[in-house]
């Protein structure tokens, strides 16, 4: 692979107006050129971003579904006044083990195990799915505890009011408890989403071409680390800022009923 040199760039590619600038500035512009423009390298970043988004959204959906199910099982078990039946106790135990194991081991290790022991994906699509499943299962353990705290935060009178109207347990959960719990846990859930987005950078260990991998590829092509890695950090920062803003809007929407 031939590396583009500053001399070659200045001689063959740089437009005339750049050559009239001070040399220090010329060198900075050259850095940007070789990282983003030369051989359409910006495509590494955009392709990587698509993967990052896909994995984040996939893992988020999976994590919230798993988390909600675990939280409902755990809180149904803990709030039943009589001794819970054997099936519920069994599921409760499984949920406890799940949360303990997934919170008790590093995500990187979980990715290595899923990527090289359990699923061993071949091809990009399979690797993507492997990443989504691993991150989703991991995130689910955290969401479960967040959601459980949300369900537990709702006054027992709400459940009684729902049941006294003739709604069954699940209807009361769905229409009365969960909407209120969701509003209460939204800030914590937002935190989890932000953490999840950043943690997707670990999927490079199972050779998935996310935006972090893109930066690494550029570094290996240009033998320069500063611009690619700083740009990578800025990309994540901007994404998180946008997310924070969106979550703020959603929170305000849901707080509609709190105004007095």
């Amino acid at each position: 692979m031939n590396v583009l040199t500053f001399a070659k760039w200045a001689a063959e590619m740089a437009p005339a107006w750049i050559l009239s600038l001070p040399e220090g500035l010329q060198r900075v512009l050259f850095q940007f050129f070789q990282v983003f423009v030369y051989e359409n390298r910006w495509k590494f970043f955009t392709d990587g971003l698509i993967t990052t988004f896909a994995v984040t959204i996939g893992a988020l959906v999976l994590g919230v579904i798993i988390g909600m199910v675990v939280a409902i099982i755990r809180s149904t078990h803990d709030s039943s006044r009589r001794k819970p039946n054997i099936i519920l106790r069994f599921f409760n135990m499984i949920c406890k083990v799940y949360v303990t194991v997934l919170r008790g081991t590093p995500l990187m290790v979980q990715l290595l195990i899923m990527g090289f022991v359990v699923m061993v994906p071949k091809g990009t699509l399979e690797t993507n799915i492997c990443a989504i499943i691993t991150l989703g299962i991991n995130s689910g353990a955290y969401v479960a505890e967040i959601a459980r705290s949300g369900i537990m935060s709702i006054n027992a009178g709400q459940m009684e009011a729902g049941r006294s109207l003739g709604l069954n347990y699940w209807q009361t959960m769905r229409f009365i408890i969960i909407p209120q719990a969701f509003k209460n846990i939204l800030p914590a859930l937002g935190n989890e989403l932000i953490a999840l987005l950043k943690e997707t950078s670990l999927v490079t260990v199972i050779a998935l071409q996310d935006v972090t991998k893109a930066a690494q590829v550029i570094v290996s092509k240009t033998y320069t680390a500063t611009i690619p890695y700083i740009s990578l950090a800025l990309i994540y920062l901007v994404l998180v800022m946008i997310l924070t803003k969106l979550l703020g809007i959603l929170e305000r929407r849901l707080r509609e009923s709190d105004k007095r």
Partner: peptide, 29 residues
């Protein structure tokens, strides 16, 4: 659940559903 539909209950702490409007509270069940 079927039997409770015929037995209305009013609580000391009201227990209205705070995330719904008054009308939605009444219509829900």
């Amino acid at each position: 659940n079927k039997l409770r539909q015929k037995m209305g209950m009013v609580f000391q702490q009201f227990n209205l559903f705070p995330h719904m409007t008054v009308k939605e509270n009444i219509k829900l069940a």
